[in-house]
Amino acid sequence: MRAIVEGDRAALVAATADRLAALLAECIAAQGRATIALTGGSVGIELLASLVDRDIDWERVVVTWSDERFVPADSPDRNARQAREALFDRVPIPADNVRELPASDGRSLDDAAERATAMLAALGGIDLTLLGMGPDAHVASLFPGLPGVGEVGTRVIAVRDSPKPPPERLSFTLDAINGSERVWLIVAGADKAEAVALAHSGAGAVEAPAGAVEGRLETLMLLDDAAAGRLAD
């Protein structure tokens, strides 16, 4: 896991937008499309909003999410709705290219996890999984000490005991995250500094799920100065 410090929060978002736009262009040139799994959270949504005016061939970009709150489709809490408002309703991406994880409307959480796993399998390889990180070093909806960090044999799990509301969520497993070609964690704020240092030290999945992520080609931790404040400790 390589740490890259980009200055303040605004500089982090701008630099990551540059990096992401370049990667999308590279993937499209090499293979005809780019497939990315997005993250929610305030920095993740700021990143998406900063892509609105970028020169990106959206018709060749396919997106999904590494986790989602299991709430109705029209809930403002959904990562997908926030992403649509920030970016996808403002750029010419085909509707079929936006692969949302299932909402709670008319289905059980277990059924939603099965559907999401099937969707992910049909999607094929993921070029990049973007992740935020919590002050407890959680990623997606994989939390320290909870059973989800040890799930194997499936790619999307039902989460019923999230310490953050709402308690019911869908989440990529570590197997799904680490099956991506690249994994980027984008992290801002002094409240994340201890978790960043712990994850960067190579802590195990039970203690720090963020420390257990590893892309097949690349693993980056993209930080602002505040989040990187404990790396030298």
Rank of each mutant, 00 (worst) to 15 (best):
V5R: 02
V5N: 03
G7T: 13
D8E: 14
R9I: 11
A11C: 12
V13L: 05
A14L: 05
R19D: 13
L20I: 07
A22C: 10
L24N: 08
A25G: 09
A25F: 10
E26A: 14
C27W: 09
C27R: 08
A30T: 05
A30M: 10
Q31P: 07
R33L: 15
R33I: 12
R33S: 11
T35W: 07
L38D: 08
L38G: 09
G40R: 00
L51H: 00
V52S: 04
D53R: 06
D57R: 02
V62K: 07
T64R: 01
T64D: 05
S66L: 05
D67L: 10
R69V: 11
F70V: 05
P72K: 13
A73L: 13
D74N: 09
P76Y: 09
Q82D: 14
A83W: 03
R84A: 14
E85R: 06
L87F: 11
L87I: 09
F88Y: 06
R90A: 07
V91L: 04
P94M: 10
A103G: 04
G106I: 10
R107Y: 11
D110M: 08
A113Q: 03
R115C: 14
G125A: 14
L128A: 05
G132N: 02
M133G: 15
D136N: 09
V139N: 03
S141R: 03
F143V: 12
F143E: 05
G145L: 12
P147W: 01
G150Q: 14
G150S: 04
E151N: 11
G153W: 07
G153P: 04
T154E: 07
T154C: 15
T154P: 14
R155M: 10
I157H: 04
A158Q: 08
P163I: 12
P166G: 15
P167I: 15
L170H: 01
F172S: 05
T173A: 04
T173H: 06
L174W: 01
L174P: 00
D175W: 06
A176S: 12
I177Y: 02
I177D: 00
G179S: 13
S180E: 02
V183Q: 00
A188Y: 08
G189I: 07
D191C: 14
A193D: 12
A195T: 04
A195L: 15
V196E: 01
V196L: 08
A197H: 04
L198T: 08
H200C: 15
A203D: 14
G204N: 09
V206R: 09
A212C: 05
E214C: 08
E214V: 12
G215L: 07
G215Q: 03
E218I: 06
M221T: 10
L223V: 01
D224V: 01
D224S: 02
D225R: 00
A227Q: 05
L231H: 06
D233M: 15
